[in-house]
Amino acid sequence: MNTQDSHTAPAPGVTLLVNGTRHHLAIGPEVTLLDALRERLNLTGAKKGCDLGQCGACTVILDGKRVNSCLVLAARAQDRPITTIEGLAADGRLHPLQQAFITHDAFQCGYCTPGQIMSGVALIEEGRGHDEAEIRKHMSGNLCRCGAYANIIAAIREAAART
């Protein structure tokens, strides 16, 4: 006999804190953070590239650290702060790295750009964005098939110099 009142039982699913807003999603335990963001919250900035954690197109910031959202189960992100590319701009102004990407023409097709920017933001927040070799090392998990690496590095260096 079930003694728990069905009216007081918590709804199944996950609560995600995305870009400062709490969202309760009725999803199963197998749903990745990437799929929850894209398919349930319509935050399509994080891209599904390889779906294996090898390209970085799905990079978001979780608890202040960059993660490949295709490798994180949404349930593991429960009540932890998540920042997506959609959450970077504030008060109608682009994040300094977003602006630097435009200034340095650091994208071509743009598919990898959100992941590149999110990884670059985390890199700068970690204090690692001042030296080209260091930037290359810490951005190595983000691939650009168009080869815009020189411009991406220039954008990160500029934004890092401003912080």
Rank of each mutant, 00 (worst) to 15 (best):
S6E: 14
C109D: 06
E30R: 15
L52T: 14
G129Q: 06
P81T: 13
L33G: 03
V121Y: 09
T103K: 07
A100Q: 04
V31P: 02
F107C: 11
V121N: 11
I27M: 04
P96A: 02
D63N: 12
T8N: 07
K65W: 13
R128T: 07
T44M: 09
G115N: 01
R40D: 04
S119Q: 07
I153E: 05
R76L: 13
A160R: 02
E39F: 10
M1S: 14
D5T: 02
A133S: 11
I156Y: 09
F107P: 11
E125I: 08
I124G: 01
G64T: 11
M118N: 09
Q98K: 03
A155M: 09
L16M: 06
Q99H: 00
A89P: 00
R22E: 08
L73D: 02
N2S: 14
T83W: 10
E86Y: 07
G92S: 06
H104K: 11
E134R: 00
S140M: 08
K47P: 06
M139C: 08
V14P: 03
A159Q: 08
D91V: 05
I153D: 04
R38L: 04
N2H: 12
L33A: 06
T21L: 12
T44W: 07
G56M: 05
A9Y: 00
G129W: 07
N2D: 15
L143H: 09
A74Q: 01
H24D: 03
Y149E: 05
R40E: 03
A90M: 03
V14D: 00
A159Y: 01
V14A: 02
P96L: 00
T21E: 14
T15G: 09
L88S: 06
Q108R: 11
G141H: 03
M1G: 15
H23I: 02
C70E: 03
K48D: 12
N19R: 04
I152Q: 09
S119E: 05
V18N: 02
G20T: 10
N19A: 00
N2C: 12
M139S: 09
S119G: 14
E126D: 11
R162E: 13
K47E: 09
N68K: 07
F101M: 15
D5Q: 04
T44V: 14
L43K: 02
C55I: 08
D105H: 15
N151F: 13
T163W: 11
A46S: 15
L62V: 04
T83C: 04
D51E: 13
G87Y: 05
A122R: 08
A26R: 06
H130V: 05
L33M: 01
E126P: 03
A133E: 11
D79L: 13
G64Y: 11
T3Q: 12
I152S: 09
V60P: 13
F101E: 13
G28I: 10
G141K: 00
V60I: 14
G64L: 11
G87W: 05
L73R: 08
V121D: 08
I85H: 05
T3H: 13
G45I: 11
P12R: 10
V121I: 10
R136Q: 09
G120S: 04
